[in-house]
Design a protein around this nucleic acid. Structure first.
Lengths: 116, 116
DNA sequence: TTCTCATAACACCAAATGGTGACATGTAGA
DNA sequence: TCTACATGTCACCATTTGGTGTTATGAGAA
């Protein structure tokens, strides 16, 4: 399971609507900082801060491409955060919860751990 | 789908580790404010604020029982928030994502909408 | 009614948050 | 090398956040 500190960083990152929207945009395509700026009414400095927080939350990955800094969605980090909700599966639809768990424990071999 | 303002209130509420822990505790049993205070090293005022934010996030429900104020987990609110992650299902395990969606659309009749 | 106890409602504070502008750095190309 | 452009870094600011203590209110029991 994800370490608590990472979980906190992730939830903290998701607590801001702009950052959630950035993740949605990154779901469509990878983006440079300048490209993210063009999609929001924000300064580059503000966007940079958001991206840093998203990176701390393990929700994006960053690579260099020439003089550009390309930001990609990190599905693993998102999934780890989403997994927190599984604790409450017992209170939702029980059939769905147990079936989902069964599927996940089966699929577990094929998915890489988020442990670094 | 949950309205954006509610989504923001929920994610904001989940951004604090104490509040997430309160939800875990409420998963075990319903609690009065005083009982929550006894489980955390916090003032009653601080706990009250956390509970207010959790209530704004639609993650708990509150009822009066005599002079006590009983707080319960609200599974519907939690589920609505967790559903936000479904947007990214395509990036996780595809087999799990599509199967889960199929199950959910089947089970959808039995679950109540969170729309008020 | 009076006492007790759970809760409510301030006023206040330090630190974190989300934002800005100004300036520095680094790399691709002419 | 010089220029252009994407990015990095810094100092600063207003507001929010998470916390405190103090003081009210409200309902059940003696």
């Amino acid at each position: 399971m994800m370490m608590n500190q990472n979980l906190q960083s992730s939830f903290r990152a998701l607590g801001d609507p702009t950052r959630r929207q950035i993740l949605i945009e990154l779901g469509r395509e990878e983006l440079t900082i300048t490209e993210v700026v063009s999609k929001f009414d924000l300064t580059r400095t503000a966007v940079r801060k958001h991206l840093t927080i998203l990176e701390e939350g393990n929700l994006i990955t960053v690579t260099r491409r020439g003089k550009e800094r390309v930001t990609c969605l990190n599905p693993n980090g998102l999934k780890s955060t989403a997994d927190w909700f599984n604790y409450f599966d017992q209170y939702w639809d029980n059939a769905l919860g147990s079936l989902k768990k069964a599927i996940e424990s089966n699929a577990h071999n094929t998915t890489s751990e988020t442990k670094k």
